[in-house]
């Protein structure tokens, strides 16, 4: 089921949580709403789910206006950051809940409920936990049960609010891949909220980058990383070095008063001055992190560190040590007006 959001606005007191949002979610895709906390992404998700009402604007499911329908009638599965499992019910009863509260004529019989719940528990690979209580489960298990519970009512849309936010790094990574596989199996239109760019880029078909209640960019993970539309996206996704033309960015001279954005892996280091645009720097710190080597340098007379990432091979071909004086030059950069830069 596709979702269409048109001119959506939401204000809390004097604070504008959503400022004229327009967004199309295609049927069957997995979309990430990515942004720092307070950017409005959760509010947008809750409005789609019917837990919050927009001040004005349109919300359509498959072209049909759903604003008058409350959460119960939208057929949307919602997965909460803190799971929100029913603490007094077993895992089985949690998953069965959506089936048990159906109106009498739609409600499946006990045998059918049993079959469906066990099927869903097998889908999330936790059937063996069916008689436990939520308090007896780990965070990752709870989140998978929450997902099984949401899927029990066969929603046309699945909404996930920071689904992995409360989990530790290792479990997060695992669940991420698992969610992606599950989505490829089920093809439910899914929207998930995250503040973790790695999560969004790894899992989603498309990423919506939000900041301060507005959408900064919508695109595939590759697009938002390789071709950021705004300075905010540049900074928020991936690491970036900022070079202010008035301080130290000799290669931006023809652009006027601007800031150049350069990815750490787009910087060349050489021991000799190539031309006028090379920037002389001193190596401050060399750290090898797995397959890459991170070098931090500082321009003469500047306390700001510039981050450079080299592959292990390139570093080994021309090793550096703290205190070395070298020249750097970006292979690629983008300039933004000084005023518009975040």
């Amino acid at each position: 089921m596709s979702i269409s959001i048109q001119n959506l606005n939401k204000q809390f007191g004097t604070y504008k949580a959503l400022d004229n949002i327009n967004l199309e979610v295609n049927s069957g895709e997995l979309l990430a709403l990515l942004g720092p906390s307070g950017c409005g992404k959760t509010t947008l998700l809750r409005i789609i789910g019917g837990m919050e009402l927009a001040d004005f604007g349109k919300l359509l499911f498959n072209g049909e206006d759903v604003e008058q329908r409350d959460a119960r009638e939208r057929n949307v599965g919602f997965v909460f950051q803190h799971y929100a499992l029913f603490r007094h019910m077993t895992v089985f009863e949690n998953v069965a809940f959506g089936l048990r509260v159906k109106p009498k004529k739609e409600r499946p019989n006990e045998a059918e409920i049993k079959r469906r719940v066990h099927e869903l528990l097998s889908l999330v690979q936790l059937d063996w936990l069916h008689d436990r209580y939520p308090a007896q489960l780990s965070g990752g298990q709870r989140q998978r049960i929450a997902l099984a519970r949401a899927l029990a009512v066969e929603p046309k849309i699945l909404l996930l609010d920071e689904p992995f936010g409360a989990l530790d790094a290792q479990v997060r990574k695992e669940l991420r891949r698992w969610l992606r596989r599950l989505h490829d199996e089920l093809h439910i239109t899914s929207v998930f909220v995250t503040h973790d760019q790695e999560e969004a880029l790894e899992v989603a078909d498309r990423v919506v980058v939000m900041n301060k209640g507005v959408i900064e960019q919508v695109g595939t993970p590759d697009e938002v990383y390789a071709a950021p539309a705004t300075s905010f996206v540049y900074q928020f996704i991936g690491n970036v070095n900022l070079f202010h033309s008035r301080d130290h960015a000799p290669w931006t001279s023809e652009h006027g008063d601007v800031v150049a954005y350069v990815r750490p892996h787009d910087i060349d280091i050489s021991t000799t001055r190539q031309d006028e645009t090379s920037l002389p720097v001193e190596v401050k710190l060399v750290r090898a992190i797995g397959s890459i080597v991170r070098v931090e340098v500082a321009a003469d007379g500047s306390s700001e560190f510039i981050e450079i990432e080299l592959s292990r091979e390139r570093f080994d071909a021309a090793p550096l040590a703290n205190g070395d004086r070298v020249f750097i030059r970006p292979r690629q950069f983008r300039v933004f007006e000084e005023a518009s830069a975040a």
Partner: peptide
């Protein structure tokens, strides 16, 4: 109120939410 919100999103009515989720808690 997350559990109540979860119940409603799963299709429970106000009464069902109260009797099955709020009251037992």
């Amino acid at each position: 109120k997350e559990e109540e919100e979860a119940a409603v999103s799963l299709g429970a009515t106000g009464w069902q939410t109260f009797w099955r989720v709020t009251l037992p808690n």
